[in-house]
């Protein structure tokens, strides 16, 4: 059976600089994949390429074994994915309207939208904010709305680009706990970009370490953390000084 998403001989260059160089990489259905690496390693670019929001310089991205034309992914395919970024980037309008936006754009009937928004607002504990302007929320509230907005369309793959990194520690922990429960319940395939070992350790089941645009190690999260290879050991050991997991 073909992987859900697959990269083959993929490169991405910007201003003659190699940003990504990935000979082969797969994402399987149901996994919670973490992509971790230092700043400037190419994590966010990889996420955009995987979500068909940016074009690779060469190589292929395959969805269920089928190569997708570079820079021309059909709208129906893009709508199978959802993304939540570090900045919540909510629109000027109520929390309800913000969470509903993905369904509104897909022209889902209003009665179904209402039902689903109420359900997702409850799951992310933001029902009491329904009528509030989304631009006036706190960081934690805004990120809850952002994640509910991404999840309401029931994506086949959810892409997350450091959505917890701007939050204070207690807010981050509460949201991550809630979010983990929701994702496990929904069994959504998730690709999670982060440079924070604690977030990766808490959330992911599989981990890919990316350094200088190359994937240096992939495997189940505990195994990668316990047995870093020669290319990833120095990066992971720096982190383990501050977050002593799997020493």
């Amino acid at each position: 059976m073909s992987p859900l998403l697959e990269l083959k001989k993929l490169t991405y260059q910007a201003q003659r600089k190699m940003i990504l160089d990935i000979p082969e990489f797969q994402i399987e259905t149901g996994e919670f994949l973490g992509i971790m690496g230092p700043n400037g390693a190419g994590k966010s670019t990889l996420l955009k390429v995987l979500a068909f929001l940016d074009q690779q310089t060469s190589g292929e991205v395959l969805y269920r074994g089928q190569a997708i034309p570079n820079g021309n992914a059909p709208l129906e395919l893009r709508r199978k994915f959802s993304i939540a970024l570090q900045q919540s980037l909510l629109l000027d309008g109520t929390v309800f309207d913000n969470i509903a936006i993905g369904l509104t754009l897909r022209k889902v009937p209003k009665s179904i939208i209402k039902e689903k928004v109420e359900q997702w607002m409850e799951l992310f504990a933001v029902s009491h904010l329904a009528k509030k302007n989304a631009l006036y929320l706190s960081g934690g509230e805004a990120q809850r709305v952002n994640l509910a907005r991404a999840m309401i369309v029931e994506p086949e793959i959810l892409f997350l680009d450091e959505p917890f990194s701007a939050l204070d520690f207690p807010t981050k922990i509460r949201l991550m706990e809630d979010f983990k429960g929701i994702i496990e319940e929904a069994q959504t395939t998730t690709v999670f970009v982060s440079h924070d070992l604690m977030e990766i350790h808490f959330l992911t089941t599989k981990l890919a370490i990316i350094v200088n645009g190359e994937i240096k190690q992939v495997g189940p999260t505990p195994r990668v953390l316990e047995h870093p290879n020669s290319s990833t050991v120095s990066f992971l050991n720096e982190w383990k000084k501050f977050y002593p997991v799997a020493r």
Binding site: K48, L53, L75, R78, S82, L91, I101, L105, V153, F159
Partner: peptide, 24 residues
């Protein structure tokens, strides 16, 4: 750029993107 990316990622067509931006 990030806002444009987010709107695209929400599944908006070009016309829907324009309409959302005009409303914003």
């Amino acid at each position: 750029e990030k806002m444009l990316l987010q709107i695209k990622a929400l599944g908006a067509t070009k016309v829907q993107t324009l309409w959302l931006l005009i409303k914003q």
